[in-house]
């Protein structure tokens, strides 16, 4: 079922991680990504894995949900592994058979690249798993608001993002419904040659587009009915404010970076 896609999904909850200010989580996610690229040692990876595991545990996210998020990337992960494993130059050969050659450096690099990709993706998933899309756009808008001075339409951009995010599940549901309806009329979406299959998608895409436009019209009307006229001077119902928890989170983030740098210096 399409419903089972977890990309960017939000798991509601009430844990310390969920309660953090979205701005904190956004900044820490960026810090996490940067930190991940500073890792050069196995000890560093162990530290990052431990940190990620701790956050996963505190946020009550099932490890299986994280693995499921990685599933669509399996091709990239395997590709990265194969590329690094077989095509890294070096003379510390571990295994050789005709033109296939695996070096110690290659093996090490393959493992570390795969680890890095997986940690990168799971870490960013942690943001979307614990923060509602609305909170993310809210946080982004506030973080980017200095750009307003440069005449970047930050508010409009965040509204667009918010609407897009809001409608992803709706459109997925709609696709599911139309797919069921057309399958009930004998539509065959799974077999046939490529052109045949592309043609079989038409009964799905046309109703989907029609309904997307209808929804856009309805939404625009509903916004106008409530006297929406842009972002100037709008106040908000939910004010973002940072508390001691956010300070603590930043502290832990700084510790992580410091730890990675220390391990790198020590070469562990």
């Amino acid at each position: 079922m399409l419903k089972d896609i977890t990309l960017g999904q939000y798991f509601p909850g009430d844990t310390p991680v969920h309660r953090l200010d979205p701005r904190t989580k956004l900044i820490l996610t960026v810090v996490y990504i940067a930190a991940l690229f500073m890792v050069k040692t196995w000890g560093g990876y162990a530290l990052v894995i431990a940190a990620l595991a701790a956050v996963t545990f505190i946020a009550h996210i099932r490890p299986r949900a994280l693995l499921k998020g990685l599933k669509p990337l399996i091709f990239i992960i395997v590709f990265t592994a194969v590329l690094n494993l077989f095509f890294t130059a070096g003379d510390d050969i571990l295994f050789q058979w005709r033109f296939i050659r695996i070096t110690h450096t290659g093996l090490e690099r393959a493992v570390s690249m795969v680890l890095r990709v997986m940690l990168l993706v799971s870490g960013t998933f942690m943001l979307t798993y614990t923060t509602s899309p609305l909170a993310i756009t809210d946080g982004l808008e506030r973080l980017l608001s200095p750009l307003n001075k440069l005449h970047v339409p930050v508010y409009e951009l965040s509204l667009m993002m918010c609407i897009a995010l809001r409608f992803i599940p709706t459109l997925i549901e709609e696709t599911d419904r139309i797919m069921s309806a057309q399958k009930a009329r004998g539509a065959d979406l799974e077999t046939g040659s490529l052109p045949e299959r592309a043609k079989a998608l038409l009964p799905l895409l046309i109703p989907l587009f029609i309904s997307a436009f209808r929804r856009a019209d309805e939404l625009a009307l509903a916004m106008e009915c409530r006297c929406y006229n842009g972002g100037q001077g709008r106040t908000r119902m939910k004010q973002l404010h940072m508390g001691w928890q956010d300070a603590a989170a930043f502290g832990l983030g700084a510790l992580l970076v410091a730890g990675i740098l220390l391990l790198r210096r020590l070469g562990i």
């Binding site: 709609e174 309806a181 009930a184 009329r185 038409l202 009964p203 029609i210």
Partner: peptide, 20 residues
Amino acid sequence: MRHARFRVGVVFQYPEYQLF
């Protein structure tokens, strides 16, 4: 399974959204 589709015709809610 395919045969069942034709012998049991299902009209879903708001079927007008399937017209294409």
